[in-house]
């Protein structure tokens, strides 16, 4: 009998006992006892979630549970119904197959994003085909140009241009929005001259009715 006829698999909830498909029931009982007996103390009180692998009849199931609980003092958490449901554990013959690649979501309209950490200073021009995220400040005289949207996790004091290819659905968001100038698509706007604008809450600039509007994007508390 091969070693891997019965395998204990640990999970967060407890142990699964994986039974090899092609084994007959008597062998299972025999193997199980062979496996547990030498380390009886170890298995005492162990939490068994359920069996996996070979399908069992209700009778066989009861018998195994009985052995585990009464002879070896293990706790059995599962029941027969859930055994049938969650028989999703990889079967023996699938084990050597390569792990399937994570399914790639079709990107569709989603774009790439450029992440920058640090201060963008006067005279610096950040141009990117996609979105731009700045973890830092954008100073006066600095320029951000993205075909997508722009997010500044800091003080936005420079000039930002989103949707440079003419996409009005892009936006410019900033933790503190005190820009020199904002451009979305071919629309340009700037803060009024009269008073020095001070940003109190995070804000975002969007195009509404052909104009760039700056408004808070968080629901007021």
């Amino acid at each position: 009998m091969k070693d891997d006829a019965i395998v204990f698999k640990g999970t967060k909830e407890g142990l699964y006992i994986v039974l090899k498909e092609e084994m007959i029931f008597d062998d299972i009982v025999h193997e199980l006892e062979n496996k547990i007996k030498p380390s009886k103390r170890f298995f005492e009180g162990a939490k068994i979630v359920n069996f996996k692998g070979k399908s069992l009849t209700p009778g066989e199931y009861e018998e195994l549970v009985d052995i585990l609980q009464n002879q070896y003092g293990m706790q059995f958490l599962g029941d027969y119904e859930s055994l049938c449901r969650n028989d999703v554990f990889p079967k023996e013959d699938q084990k050597d197959q390569p792990i399937p690649e994570p399914v790639k979501q079709p990107l569709g309209d989603e774009e790439k994003a450029l992440f920058i950490k640090g201060t963008i200073r006067s005279g610096q021009l950040i141009k990117f085909d996609g979105n731009i995220v700045v973890l830092g400040d954008v100073n006066p005289g600095a320029y951000l140009e993205a075909t997508g949207s722009i997010i500044v996790m800091g003080n936005m004091r420079g000039t930002a241009h989103s949707g440079t290819q003419g996409d009005y659905s892009t936006y410019i968001a900033a933790y503190k929005m005190e820009p020199m100038q904002l451009r979305i698509g071919d629309i340009i706007n700037r803060p009024p001259d009269e008073k020095k604008y001070k940003s109190e809450v995070p804000e975002m600039a969007v195009v509404k009715q052909g104009m760039i509007i700056v408004e808070p994007y968080l629901v007021k508390k």
Partner: peptide
């Protein structure tokens, strides 16, 4: 070029396109 200031002194910096 590259270290412009005249726009700031004139208060016209935010109008530059």
């Amino acid at each position: 070029i590259g270290l412009r200031n005249l726009d700031v002194v004139m208060g016209l910096e935010n109008r530059i396109v």
